[in-house]
Simulated assay, not measured.
Amino acid sequence: MPPLPPDRILRRRLEVGRRIRDARTWANLTQERLAERAEIDRKTISRIENGHMSPSLDHLLDIAEAAGVEPVCLVPGGPEPWGRPTAPEVP
């Protein structure tokens, strides 16, 4: 089994995967439907969303188009038009 990548890369993968999942659910798409629209295998979408692999630039662009968001929304630091749920404040 190959060694794990450094923590910073794992954190980045998880953040990109979360953003893709958020964009997909915001667009009301299943992984299957997103995969069809982006012409990417559904297992690849799952692996990316779960941080098991990094998307190629081509995949990132195809996923953004399929979900109806700008590619910058899928990378750390980019805008999140779907909003991000926050935990309620505890008094």
Rank of each mutant, 00 (worst) to 15 (best):
M1F: 07
P3V: 09
P5I: 00
P6R: 00
D7L: 14
I9F: 00
L10H: 05
R12L: 15
R12I: 12
L14C: 07
E15S: 11
E15P: 08
V16L: 13
G17T: 05
R21G: 06
R21P: 03
R21V: 04
D22W: 08
A23H: 02
T25F: 10
T25K: 13
W26I: 02
N28G: 08
L29S: 08
L29H: 06
T30I: 03
E32I: 10
L34N: 02
A35G: 09
A35Y: 07
A35T: 09
E36T: 08
E36K: 07
E36M: 05
R37C: 06
R37D: 04
E39C: 07
E39M: 11
I40C: 04
I40H: 04
D41Q: 15
D41K: 14
K43H: 11
I45F: 01
S46M: 06
S46T: 08
I48N: 07
I48M: 04
E49D: 10
E49M: 12
G51C: 09
M53E: 10
M53W: 00
L57V: 14
L57W: 11
D58S: 14
H59V: 06
H59W: 02
H59R: 13
H59I: 06
L61T: 05
L61P: 04
D62K: 15
I63V: 08
A64Q: 04
A64L: 03
A64G: 03
A64P: 03
A66H: 03
G68D: 04
V72W: 06
C73K: 02
C73V: 00
C73F: 03
P76H: 02
P76A: 00
P76M: 02
P76T: 01
G77P: 07
G78V: 01
P81V: 04
P81R: 03
G83C: 06
R84E: 15
R84L: 14
T86Q: 14
V90C: 10
